[in-house]
Design a protein around this nucleic acid. Structure first.
Length: 288
DNA sequence: GGGAGTTGAGAGCGCAGCTA
DNA sequence: TAGCTGCGCTCTCAACTCCC
């Protein structure tokens, strides 16, 4: 078993297609087939389920991919240790939830100082971003906090107020029982906060409608489709135009913090160190 | 027919072992 | 030490099956 085999395995798993992986790796498809077969023979277990329209990881393959991600990440870090120069450079894979309002400021400031670093940004929900950081698929992520996790390091980015958004000027707690609630998919920090509030109030929601785009949720609320909970800053532009109305949440549920997480075991490259420095600088500026 | 994966044959390359 | 040879591995090409 060679490193190249693991890279091929990871690529096939990612593309869910041997042909797709072959294209990306600049191999012919039959070679990828052969390498995967060889890997399966070596491990004496099928790593993929073959379908008419491609392949998918078998239960053993899913087990394997966790190790492969870790091994390839370790190798990448090993190379980084020797390649790491004084000037931050290379690729930083960063995840973020959609509503980090100061992210553009942080990124702009970082790019200005360290133009040799390529930042690859990936949007997602808090829970899925945590998983990707834990699996070393991302170097770090901006998520809704707080978080208690022994293998993740966290850095405070900022705290802001959550607000309940409706299309009506007035709001009563009973409205939850009659109006649909528009939320992100499971794994969103705002959704968890809202669900906790409803649980505390003993309210059974009328209907939860799931979306995965913030703008869609806010525009739907403006059209009277339902109500939602989002950070105040994310909805202020619509509130100013009178398209939606904001209502305060109970004090204990009203604040949500955004944190930056990274894997504790991951090698701290100059690029990452500089990003953490930029985050801390912005936090200090916002508190000043 | 086209897109998916599989299989077999053969070329190219690197390495180890042998010999002069 | 240099050159030759054989072996094993990787890769490509071509032909194949399967299915929509």
């Amino acid at each position: 078993m060679e490193l190249r085999d693991l890279q091929i395995f990871k690529c096939v798993a990612h593309h869910k297609s041997i042909t797709g992986a072959a294209k990306e790796l600049n191999y012919v498809q039959s070679n990828v087939t052969a390498r995967i077969k060889q890997l399966e023979n070596e491990l004496k277990t099928p790593l993929f389920n073959r379908h008419k329209k491609g392949v998918s990881l078998s239960p053993e393959g899913r087990k394997m991919i966790e190790y492969v991600n870790k091994i390839l990440k370790d190798v990448e870090e090993l190379e980084q240790v020797f390649l790491d120069t004084e000037i931050p450079s290379g690729i930083l894979k960063i995840g973020t939830v959609e509503t980090v309002r100061i992210l553009p400021t942080i990124i702009a400031s970082y790019y200005k100082k360290y133009p040799n670093v390529d930042l690859s940004l990936q949007a997602g929900l808090t829970e899925e971003l945590i998983k990707k950081v834990m699996n070393h698929e991302l170097d770090g992520a901006f998520i809704s906090g707080p978080l208690k996790h022994s293998i993740l390091e966290q850095y405070d980015v900022y705290t802001e107020k959550l607000t309940l958004v409706t299309s009506n000027k007035t709001f009563n707690i009973e409205d939850f029982s009659t109006t649909p609630i528009l939320v992100f998919n499971q794994g969103c920090g705002y959704r968890s906060r809202l669900e906790q509030w409803l649980k505390d109030e003993g309210v059974l929601p009328n209907r939860m409608m799931e979306f995965n785009i913030l703008e869609t949720i806010l525009n739907s609320v403006a059209l009277g489709l339902g109500i939602t909970v989002v950070p105040e800053s994310a909805v202020m532009h619509l509130a100013v135009q009178g398209k939606v109305y904001c209502h305060p949440l109970p004090e204990k549920d009203s604040c949500i913090s955004t944190i930056f997480i990274r894997h504790k075991d991951a090698y701290l490259t100059n690029s990452m160190r500089s990003l953490l420095k930029t985050i801390v600088e912005h936090k200090n500026m916002s508190m000043a």
